[in-house]
């Protein structure tokens, strides 16, 4: 945690941490505490006075079926996105780990989507699925399957899941490939000599050894899907049609900024903060363990 040999100075360390601490207090701690405070208040319609109501905002939230729906939708969205991104990446990483020729080239072609902003990923897939000029949308309609994500909620959901997962594949790919390459070769060779084929080796050796990586990626992908996919949805479906793609982060924004329901939005913020801190602590606990061995 800290060096045994140190410098002695009374003022300098404070000057060094000051910028970070100031920014943290002004832009993180203060707004977050405001959120917590506001979540206990109800404002009158004109914003002139507010009343302290304890947990009424939270109670109202959990009695509200639109909020509970958004919760369920978020879970569906997040797990589908994580599953799609992780399974695609794992498959591609295994293939890339097998080939000898052209490995670097394949790698280059697989990692660039990491750099594409989520909003732009959304826009790209919005075009792909467009019923009149998008390959997939137009193709499905031509084949007789009616595709119109402007009207059909499930189809809009598929659109945002695919766009969000697409962007995340490269990230997972890099971690899986690093994981695969750190598996000691003699282990695999010994199994091969004993007559285990590639599929059997994957099931009994490689996948178990990759499971810490997979688990770590699951947490990271869930955090991504929960919080960082806001741009995908905001730039494309805007939570619609008929709230079919309104996930929790989008709802906080919508209720707070557009609907101006300050107390309700603050209560939603607090719930999201609890979720994200839980996931972060979880991730760190796991990572600390990984570092020690």
């Amino acid at each position: 945690m800290q060096k045994q040999v140190r410098f002695d100075n009374k003022v300098l360390p404070y000057l060094l941490v000051a910028p970070q601490v100031l920014i943290t207090i002004i832009f993180f701690i203060w707004p977050a505490s405001q959120s917590v405070y506001q979540s206990f208040l109800v404002e009158d319609p004109f914003g002139l006075s507010s009343e302290f109501v304890w947990f009424a905002n939270f109670e109202e939230l959990f009695a509200d079926s639109t909020y509970l729906d958004a919760f369920g939708r978020t879970l569906l969205f997040s797990f589908s996105t994580a599953f799609l991104a992780i399974s695609m990446a794992l498959f591609l990483a295994i293939m890339a780990d097998r080939v000898i020729r052209g490995e670097t080239l394949y790698k280059t072609f697989l990692i660039w989507p990491y750099a594409v902003a989520p909003a732009l990923a959304g826009v790209l897939w919005f075009l792909m699925f467009n019923p009149t000029i998008g390959v997939i949308g137009f193709g499905l309609n031509a084949l007789g399957y009616e595709w119109n994500h402007y009207l059909n909620g499930w189809q809009a959901m598929v659109l945002v899941i695919v766009a969000s997962a697409w962007k995340q594949i490269s990230y997972n790919f890099i971690f899986f490939l690093a994981g695969l390459q750190s598996i000691p070769k003699p282990l695999i060779e010994a199994a091969a000599i004993d007559g285990a084929g590639p599929a059997h080796r994957f099931k009994t050796i490689i996948f178990p050894l990759l499971s810490p990586t997979t688990f770590f990626l699951l947490v990271v992908n869930l955090v991504y899907a929960f919080f960082e996919t806001f741009p995908v949805i905001h730039a494309t479906t805007q939570g619609g049609p008929a709230k079919a793609t309104e996930i929790l982060v989008y709802k906080v924004f919508n209720d707070g900024f557009i609907g101006l329901d300050l107390g309700g939005s603050a209560a939603q913020s607090v719930i999201l903060m609890i979720i994200v801190s839980g996931l972060t602590v979880f991730q760190f606990k796991y990572v600390e363990k990984k570092v020690t061995y």
Binding site: I29, E228, V249, G256, T280
Partner: peptide, 24 residues
């Protein structure tokens, strides 16, 4: 204490504290 305060910022993405941050 300062170390933990910096650590806490990890848990507060913009998305969850939009309104108050905007006000600041």
């Amino acid at each position: 204490a300062i170390f933990w305060m910096i650590f806490m910022t990890l848990m507060l993405p913009v998305e969850v504290r939009i309104l108050p941050t905007f006000e600041v």
